[in-house]
């Protein structure tokens, strides 16, 4: 396609080449060629104007959307998130209780945020409704309801210098405590996968 051909000046020099050598001193051809001299001067001006435009845009509140744009998006995102996956955690004569996975992840992430050297990534939580709830789970349901076993799979990024086994053990402990305190369930399994490093 002709449009995609390398665009050239009247003297045959490619504009791309000229642009990439703006910082280098003009060569012999460029010094004597009117096409190149002219184009070079214009391109230097363009480069300055581009930098000024970029800088001005980035620092001017006029180039920012209204706050209501962010609020609308987040209202919808939060509402959708809360309903994205509901886990039936408790059967009861008087009715069932389900908790959104997102609400449970909030508790998990809250616990993980308190452990230095760890960044929580994907978190998947499941309850097993197929199995009979185990009486040894340590759950205590004062109203006689039955609680389903909960399994937490958390993927994390770790800072390079931490001692992984110790940190993961602390993390697992903190998650267990937080879920017990804020939900009222002792998760039976907390699987933690360290999948990446990050710079602290």
């Amino acid at each position: 396609m002709a449009l995609e051909d390398t665009p050239r000046l009247g003297c045959g020099r490619s504009i791309d080449h000229l642009w990439s050598t703006l910082d280098a001193p003009a060569g012999e051809h460029e010094e004597h060629c009117a096409h190149c001299r002219d184009a070079r001067a214009r391109m230097i001006q363009l480069r300055q104007a581009t930098a000024a435009l970029k800088d001005a845009e980035a620092n001017d509140p006029a180039f920012t959307p209204r706050r209501s744009v962010r609020d609308s998006i987040m209202d919808i995102a939060r509402t959708e998130a809360r309903r994205s996956r509901l886990l039936a955690v408790q059967d009861h004569d008087g009715g069932t209780t389900e908790i959104s996975e997102q609400a449970l992840s909030t508790v998990v992430r809250f616990a993980a945020a308190g452990v230095p050297g760890i960044q929580a990534r994907r978190c998947r939580i499941d309850v097993s409704t197929a199995e009979k709830p185990s009486p040894t789970m340590g759950t205590h349901d004062a109203t006689g309801g039955s609680l389903h076993p909960m399994v937490i799979d958390l993927r994390v990024a770790a800072a390079p210098k931490i001692h992984i086994p110790h940190t993961v053990s602390v993390l697992r402990h903190q998650i267990g405590i937080s879920i017990a305190r804020s939900v009222g369930i002792y998760p039976v399994t907390i699987n933690i996968t360290v999948e990446d490093l990050y710079d602290d």
């Binding site: 939060r78 809360r82 309903r83 509901l86 008087g94 009715g95 069932t96 209780t97 389900e98 908790i99 959104s100 997102q102 609400a103 449970l104 909030t106 508790v107 804020s182 939900v183």
Partner: peptide
């Protein structure tokens, strides 16, 4: 009469 009272906890904050 009170029948089933189902509760969904959508957020813990």
């Amino acid at each position: 009469g009170a029948g089933s009272i189902d509760i969904s906890i959508l957020a813990i904050e």
